[in-house]
């Protein structure tokens, strides 16, 4: 990682039925996007306890993404 450009670490919670599916579809279509996201699959974003978000930040995430 280079120091001169900000390369955020993003933690994502993706809903199995929509956002995770969309991320798959993006792959199928070979859309390219920056490799900064690390994902956690959940069955619904309803599952995302606010504490998960806080935990993510505590663990050093620069941003949290929830998609559902």
């Amino acid at each position: 990682m280079s120091d001169n450009s900000f390369s955020p670490k993003i933690l994502g919670f993706l809903c199995n039925w929509c956002c995770y599916a969309a991320a798959d579809a993006a792959g199928v279509s070979r859309f390219q996007y920056p490799p900064n996201l690390r994902t956690v699959r959940v069955m619904c974003t309803g599952r995302v306890d606010p504490s998960f978000v806080l935990k993510g930040f505590l663990e050093g995430a620069d941003a949290i993404f929830t998609g559902g």
Binding site: K9, L11, V40, V42, K55, G60
Partner: peptide, 19 residues
């Protein structure tokens, strides 16, 4: 899920050290 988030964190921490 928490351990998954922690595992995400492990790496962030190690990289920050490296940087």
């Amino acid at each position: 899920l928490t351990s998954q988030i922690e595992a995400f964190g492990n790496n962030v921490a190690s990289e920050k050290v490296m940087a």
